[in-house]
Structures are given as C-alpha cells and as structure tokens.
Nucleic acid binder design. Sequence first.
DNA 1: ACAATTTTGTTATGATATAACAAGTAAAAC
DNA 2: GTTTTACTTGTTATATCATAACAAAATTGT
Lengths: 174, 174
Amino acid sequence: MKHEDSHQHSQQDSHQHSHHNHNDCIDTALETAETLCAEQGQRLTKVRRRALELIWESHRPLGAYQLLAKLAEEGFNSAPPTVYRALDFLLGAGLIHKVESMNAYLGCAHADKAHKGYFLICDECHNVMEFDYQDIHAALIEKAAHQGFELRAETIELTGLCAKCKAKKVGASA
Amino acid sequence: MKHEDSHQHSQQDSHQHSHHNHNDCIDTALETAETLCAEQGQRLTKVRRRALELIWESHRPLGAYQLLAKLAEEGFNSAPPTVYRALDFLLGAGLIHKVESMNAYLGCAHADKAHKGYFLICDECHNVMEFDYQDIHAALIEKAAHQGFELRAETIELTGLCAKCKAKKVGASA
DNA sequence: ACAATTTTGTTATGATATAACAAGTAAAAC
DNA sequence: GTTTTACTTGTTATATCATAACAAAATTGT
C-alpha cells in the first residue's frame, strides 16, 4: 500500500469533537483556496469565497439550491445562475467535489493534491467521508488502459452504513 | 486476478459488428429478464418490457425523457410517472443501471449475476462500457470495512477517451 | 363474482440546471 | 489615468430531471 489517507468531512453537530475541530478545517480550506487561486491567477471573489465557506460549514454535502438560499439570506443575488457559477468555478479549481448520486456539493479536503473524489456515503445519517486510495486509482488506470481507454476522471461513490450508525443499530436491537 | 470481464454495451451505429451482434444482446437480455421476473414473481408488463427493450436498443445510456418520447411514439402513456415507474421497476430488478453522472439509464449485461455497475464513459462519443472487476470490489469492501463502514452499493463511473476516439484523434492530428 | 393487490392514468408540482444577453467591475494596455 | 479588454455578475426565461397524490383499471387470490 503506497499511500492511503482519509478525512472525516462531516460531523453530527456543530460542536467541536475531541479529535476534530471543524472550524480549523474550514480555515485551512479557505487558506488553501486563496493560495491556489492566487497561484493560478484565478479570482476568488466574494460570492465564490462565501460559497466555499458555506459548503464547508455544512456538515453534509450541500445542494445548489440550499446554498443559494444561504447566500440569499446574506444579501447575495438569489437567482440560480449565481450559485451555479460559483459552483462551476469551485469545481474547476478543484476546491469542491460534486457527489453525483446526491446532486450535492462537498468541500474538497485535498485541493492542493490534485486528486479525484472517492466517497463513503452513509445511508442513515448522510454524512460523507472522502478518502483517497492510490491502490485503487492505479488499478483503475491499468484496467482502463487494458481496454484502450484513457482515464481522465473518476466518480467513486460508495454507500452503506457508517461506523456510528452501525453501532447505533446494534445498540437499538440489543 | 480472480475474475475480470467486460462487455461493450454500445456501438457507433445499429449495424452489426463482426464480433458483436447487438440484437443478440437484446434478445439475451430480454430472455434473462423474463426468467428473473418469473422466478421472483415479478410482473414484466408491456411498458416495462418495452422500456427495457428500448434501453437496450439505444447505443448509449438513455435519458428518462428520451425513453418517454419513444414510448409515447408507440402509443404508451406519455406522462413522466409512466417512465419513472418502469425505470424504478427495472432498476429494482437489477435489469438496468443508472449512470449517475449522466442521469441516464443503461441495460445491465449481468442481470443474473448480482453485481454493481462499473462504467467506462467516453467523453467524446458518450459510449459506455460496463465492466466488472472483482479485485477492485474486494479492495473497496476491505477499505470501507477498515473504517468501520459497511458497504452496500457502489457507484463507479470512469470518464475519459475510449480506444476508438483516441485512435480518431491521433489520425486527425497526423 | 368478490376482495385484495398491483399497476397504470392523470394532473400538478418540485428539484436541478442552463441559455442568453445586459450591466457592472477589475485588470491590462496604452 | 483613461481607455480597452477580459472577466464577473445581474436578470429573465426556460430546459431538464423527478416525484406527490389520487383516481381508474387490470390482475391475482379466494
């Protein structure tokens, strides 16, 4: 196993965990975003920046219209193109991912690393964990190449039961 | 590698290939569908059967409203619920897959085998190949379990350039 | 035939996303 | 420092994907 790492993006509530202060995550993500945009001559404008923050503040993947509502509350323009433009920008910059099976958007924890989003999605609590698994990535590239296919992007979304919800179920039936 | 197999679901046109008669595919798929439904006491009604056929006849994943239009041409009811009900049934029976990143539906080549759909999607021609890769499946289960996650379903959609389109590009630039 | 179940018809609406063009704003060129 | 250019945002309208709710019809079991 060359490299493997994972990151719990979401949490049950807004309180701080003993092992995970989500506010730090947001701060780091925003700093990374600033840096990346600066490096690439991209403009992280007010709406774009605030959209990214709001996506990070959410504990689960955020729908476009949910995000739009939050932005509208803060006085931003409340027509759909506003939010979709921001989302397009952030997706293009690799700062967020789209979870295709949920039509929702999630802050990317490894924006600086150039990667694909691999997700574990809990059917019960709808929390999403992003993970990065080089072995699988390599295997997929090889598998695709074997069929003459040149891989560009990967959508890997796994659903099931997360550890917490599994524990809760066992407790309930006991 | 324990098991690996793939199947080219789509083709450029409706003519027969030297190595692939798509009509045979459709026939086989429909027979399998009949058998499976009979075994499980499920009713493969007219709309459902015709929907499945139409999905198979399409050379690419078919959108719900595209399917609806085809059904309407043939005198079936042309309101959305008709097609979504048929799709729900076929999805539930494992006879088709939904390609999440395209919001489109594709005949399942291994309906009898109980599996997840892994797809290679060409950005150029939009053809889709389904493949089945036990090594990756096993690795994903293990990886998820390692994080206490109980895997139930997998959405694996890989995009890029298929062999044909790659060849075409090389030819064009030469 | 009757009741129970499932499937389909029908109307309406919700949810997700983009087209097209005008107006504003920041960056670059002069 | 104004003009030109490119980019970003505002605004209206509409396309696309999907489901809720309830009535009618068909199928199945008794």
